[in-house]
Amino acid sequence: MLKVSNLVKQFNGASGKVTAVSDISFEVPEGQFASIIGKSGSGKSTLLSLLGALDKPTSGKIEVGGHDVTKMHDHRLIKYRGKEIGFVFQNYNLVPNLTAIENVMLPMEFAHVSPNERKRRAVELLDQVGITADKQKRKPSRLSGGEQQRVAIARALSNKPSLILADEPTGNLDSQTGKMIFDLLHDLAKSENTTIVAVTHDLSIAGKTDVTFTLKDGSLV
């Protein structure tokens, strides 16, 4: 379960303070798929980076599985990011000089999973997202955008996170591939009972999620 209360994030821009997220509160029950929509600059990415502990809020509370993320020390935050959160980005963000399988194994390496188990789980996940054995050995530059995003989803799932955060995961893909990626995320979330928060511009995708939040100028509407 994800619970956000009175979350505020301000940036010190060149022209004074910018409030990217202003006083947001919401809840997403465990295993549910939530979507966030809103115009460009409305604070969607900022909200996600706060949920994923990539950035610290100015004020407010984020609870994941009963733990207050905002009270965690740096050391715990690193563990939290590695084990409880899976990220999927619009531009995939795979490590360019690692192969697909190595990319999927990387978070497990940081979480000190044994090499054999890393390999087994990575192959299993890549098979699930439909990356064939020969493509598993390729570097990202030799994979299509859709394939890269599948690898990124497999990587996000590798440490069995309780929360997956996806920032416009279909934004760089054509609508058909985007739909396939969305279905993949949806199915995996259901089978592993993982909570998902996904930012999207695609209203047809948003319409199929369990709950949709709309952001406007940093506030929920």
């Binding site: 990539l54 490590v95 940081f110």
Partner: peptide, 16 residues
């Protein structure tokens, strides 16, 4: 920079 950001996002410590 971006790669370093990715490492951090998926659970790598600074030291690592």
């Amino acid at each position: 920079r971006r790669e370093i950001g990715v490492y951090k996002a998926i659970g790598a410590s600074n030291i690592r």
